[in-house]
């Protein structure tokens, strides 16, 4: 048997930004004006573009 052991697992999907401009009475929603989020189209919690922070 080959010896193979996990070193690290990482989820690399683009993350959801903090609640966007949702304007629910309870949402303090600063965010997704967020320059901090650079990955294209990743402002959505829905964005699954794998590794869109990556070099592709």
């Amino acid at each position: 048997m080959l010896k193979i052991a996990t070193v690290e697992k990482r989820t690399t999907s683009a993350a959801a930004c903090h609640a966007p401009a949702c304007h629910a009475p309870s949402c303090h929603a600063p965010a997704c004006h967020a320059p901090a989020c650079h990955a294209p189209a990743c402002h959505a919690p829905s964005c699954h573009a794998p590794a869109c922070h990556g070099p592709a």
Binding site: L2, K3, I4, A5, T6, V7, K9, T11, S13, H48
Partner: peptide, 16 residues
């Protein structure tokens, strides 16, 4: 190894 949105890094022996 990247699978969808998951990256897994594994140590492997010299033969593998």
């Amino acid at each position: 190894r990247q699978d969808g949105a998951q990256l897994e890094v594994a140590a492997i022996d010299a033969f593998g």
